[in-house]
Design a protein around this nucleic acid. Structure first.
Lengths: 339, 339
DNA sequence: GTGAAAGCGCTAACAT
DNA sequence: ATGTTAGCGCTTTCAC
């Protein structure tokens, strides 16, 4: 740091003009091999790094992009963020991480701030507020929606195919002989929540031509909500032999309540989670859950964004990655007795 | 975005010179109230935002800082990162998040990259590599070490007082009548790991004038390591009535193995974790653990950094926040029987 | 093929 | 109190 070298120093040391240095560094061709070498040597000796800020002022890329997520404290996101960052750093990008807490105001403010910081692109987990400020403000800035998205021919997204995830879980439960499968999920405020519930609904209708609404409770994607929803389900006094949860956090809440009520999992009731956060395999009993390839979603989102930025591939793409089912210890064949 | 306004546009619209605009925006005083108002109006109408990049080129602060942590996938960090970010955004800062994976090479490279990006300061979770590149490169850049630190009169840090944390846990166990308390922790590669082990050692020596080394196993801060260490402890065939774990992940591994071996927790063996990650209270049985105020550590680190940057308070400070004990379901009085 | 010079948007020193 | 101007470090015409 002490004495930051600039392009002038390099030019002087190499005995050439600054434009030649600039040319070499941006490998625009048309520099004699000999001079090129001199410049490269000088760069080496002086330990020169070109100043990103100055380049940015000339409209060059900042090698920086923004990542807008609801909250890094939501255990669903860390590995996705990691996927984004790993791909970013592999390509020389730094990333600004911002939390929106699901607030449209914060989301838009953060988005603006990123624009001010002259990021080369933005990856965001879309909300119902996203489209508004996006169309209001955006021009050519590459944008990728990650996980939660908004249907649009203008924006790329990478997400998980929840119809597959739900089907995997339901088939598994059916195979084990379960007939009355309850659904405790999130209110339908995000693309993922909607898709999961729709897939469940369709499955049940296919099965018995109608949806038994008493089997459904909708809340939030939290442990506390899992607890409340289970209590609500129990209060209804409806028969069920298994529960499909909207995410793993809900599942933990579910299992906790069932345990308190002396209802054994999986012996009496089978429980399936959704997400497969790291914790699900540390839990006792280990949670059977739909595995979302979150790291891959993050990585692919970043790759797509970088391709858009660099101009390698500017096309709008809509990608759904297939989830898988992690069968562990919270589901059991109906009528079996593990005791 | 479409047509980014610049200071010239504002000057023209307000009928003043660009320096007047600049003065108003940087509220250096000495501008007639009337003109000031004109400028402010023009700014409003045009929707002008000053260009951070151009300001940065003039050596002004970028309102940006770096945050260097081992990995956001480590469940210990998200809430700490959140603490940092909340404080940052409250003060108009954006933060670059970087993962080092505990590699010195990556850590140094990321650090350099942040320097290149002209961040106003850096918060980092120190490793054994940190001091080297720090003294090699750093000049006046504000630095705060967060959680893990390196003793130095030159660098501020914010961390948790592990001697208190360990004592809280040990006192609790002793109060419940436990005498042979095993310690499964991390190898002594970070300040936190060293302090926790030292505190345990001191406690045991105070208790029976020597440390029984057969009660100690050192590994990593992971679930898998928790499993391995427990198996090792069991293999030694040494008597113990309780286990203090270096972190919660280890504790989950411990409990899993004990369960597999048919050893009841807490009925036969009490287990205490360390960290109190969110998951600890979702776990069954809910984990008794030392609560680290991670959010506060992050928030305070950011506050200190911002104070240093803004010049409000440039002093080097060494702060240790006190942890507390979250008593839950994995510890029990010796001889009680919950059945 | 190479260098001189303009200019990105801004701040601050200097002039008035 | 306000305007004019140099210059931050770089890229990119434009001359040669």
């Amino acid at each position: 740091m002490v004495n930051r070298k600039n392009i002038k120093d390099v030019a002087r040391a190499a005995g050439v003009s600054i434009s030649t240095v600039s040319r070499v560094l941006n490998d625009s061709k048309g520099v004699r091999e000999e001079l090129k070498q001199k410049v490269l040597d000088a760069v080496q000796i002086l330990g020169y790094h070109s100043n990103t800020i100055a380049r940015a002022l000339k409209g060059m890329p900042t090698k920086t992009f923004g990542l807008l997520i609801p909250s890094i404290e939501n255990p669903f996101f860390p590995s996705m963020v990691r996927g984004v960052q790993d791909e970013a750093h592999r390509n020389g990008y730094s990333v600004f991480l911002c939390n929106t807490d699901g607030s449209g105001i914060i989301e838009e403010a953060q988005f603006r701030l990123l624009l001010d910081k002259k990021v080369d692109g933005i990856i965001l987990v879309a909300s119902k507020y996203t489209t508004k400020y996006l169309k209001k403000e955006n021009n050519e800035l590459p944008i990728v929606m990650m996980d939660r998205y908004v249907r649009s021919p203008n924006y790329s997204y990478v997400t998980v195919d929840h119809s597959v995830g739900v089907r995997l879980a339901m088939d598994h439960l059916r195979t084990l002989g379960h007939k009355r499968i309850a659904f405790l999920g999130s209110k339908l405020i995000s693309s993922g929540a909607r898709e999961r519930f729709q897939a469940y609904k369709r499955y049940m209708i296919d099965l018995r031509s109608k949806l038994d609404e008493s089997l459904v409770v909708l809340g939030d994607y939290t442990y506390e909500s899992g607890i409340k929803m289970t209590e609500e389900l129990l209060r209804r006094d409806v028969k069920f032999d298994s529960i499909l949860c909207g995410n793993d956090l809900i599942a933990f809440g579910v299992i906790e309540v069932l345990k308190q009520k002396g209802i054994a999992v999986p012996d009496s009731i089978s429980v399936v989670g959704y997400d497969d956060i790291a914790f699900s395999s540390y839990y006792t009993p280990k949670l059977t859950t739909v595995h979302q390839p979150t790291y891959d979603v993050g990585q692919l989102s970043a790759k797509m964004l970088i391709d858009m930025i660099s101009g390698v591939d500017r096309r709008v793409k809509h990608i759904k990655i297939e989830p898988s089912l992690a069968i562990r210890e919270t589901t059991l064949r109906v009528g079996s007795d593990s005791h």
